[in-house]
Design a protein around this nucleic acid. Structure first.
Lengths: 196, 196
DNA sequence: TGTACATCAGTGAACGCGCGTTCACTGATGTAC
DNA sequence: TGTACATCAGTGAACGCGCGTTCACTGATGTAC
């Protein structure tokens, strides 16, 4: 028996994330995670206070990847507007490629209510980082003549569009063929640039 | 003991919906529903094949209410665009007022995979009704000069905006005060009418 | 370099829980005669 | 109108399951001397 694993904590996060993506949130139990990591079912308690703490670590991890994916999409295009749009497409793609993780990150699967304040800080911080980067890019595209309040609403609308597309798509509500789209990235790009 | 309840089936749907809204999806069990309806824990099996069937009935019920709420909002305003916008606000409000129901309706809490084709038809039909009404109203606002494909994308964008707002809000991602909004309906109305 | 020891990260067994589901049953209801 | 009986919607007890969590434990590791 291995009595010292090396880095069980991150191995558990990885294992949980893998179960989550493969089998969904309701199969993602502490026990299954421990088994996946090849460790006894009580071992996770040396690294996580409870199940919620593990799920929060997975969510925080997800947010860090998410932030990176959006930023790198934005950087690969020149021009504030192009970059903003590219990061919108990346938003939808990330959700599509990691649907269960995306739901865990945004949803209510973790019990945030009973967490003492100060706890769960990791997810909170990681998600805040994502959204502030998002808003920064949105702000960079704003018409200079418009008041700040309008720019903020516009940024929210852009966010809602990509979040709505992502959510509807992973919940199976969007029929790509019906829109003549070859994939969700294609459809997202066209929807994002659409104007009345 | 009451051996004949009268209309246990719909009482169970009502009970499940009430537990769902009050305590969330993970507390919504068949047993809890039976207890809430004041009936033995095995009784539901005379009306629903399994837990999924009960949840599907709740979701279908929700979709019917949802469709009504959107239609009546659209009807209370004159003009296609005003009606369309009003139904968008109603969309967000419905989600806000019935967050758990909304998640059940759209989400993956029911196991749709293992349902034999032909089953679950009730939800499918009810949700299709909702979305087709939505698209009809969107189409009515379309610029006549635009090709149909563009109008369809525009309708999808409108849908994504309200669905995104609804989802982000019920998941606690939107700070109303930060936008100077008095409530979510107010904010939704402003976001919906916002243009670049 | 060698040894005693505190610490720390594992183990494995056990707890209690609520759940979905099944079963044989029971009593109320409506219908045929 | 009265009665026999099939049907149907309930009951209550039981099943097995996987889960979160706790516990006393054990053996590996690093450090002080």
């Amino acid at each position: 028996m291995d009595y010292h694993h090396g880095d069980l904590r991150s191995a558990l996060v990885k294992a949980a994330r893998s179960i989550l993506e493969e089998h969904g949130i309701e199969k993602t139990s502490l026990r299954a995670t421990a088994r996946e990591a090849g460790v006894s079912e009580a071992a996770p308690y040396h690294h996580f206070k409870d199940k919620n703490a593990l799920l929060s670590a997975v969510a925080a991890d997800g947010f860090r990847d998410f932030t990176k994916a959006l930023a790198s999409a934005a950087a690969s295009d020149e021009g504030a507007i192009e970059g903003h749009r590219a990061s919108g497409v990346a938003y939808v793609k990330f959700a599509t490629e990691n649907p269960h993780l995306f739901r865990l990150m945004f949803g209510s699967a973790r019990n945030e209510m009973k967490a003492p304040p100060g706890c769960d800080d990791d997810v909170k911080q990681a998600s805040r980082d994502s959204f502030s980067a998002l808003q920064t890019r949105a702000a960079a595209t704003a018409n200079k003549d418009k008041p700040d309040a309008e720019a903020a609403l516009m940024a929210l609308k852009d966010w809602a569009v990509v979040h709505g597309l992502a959510t509807l798509f992973i919940d199976g509500r969007i029929d790509l063929a019906g829109y003549g789209a070859k994939d969700i990235g294609d459809l997202a790009a066209r929807v994002i640039q659409m104007q009345r």
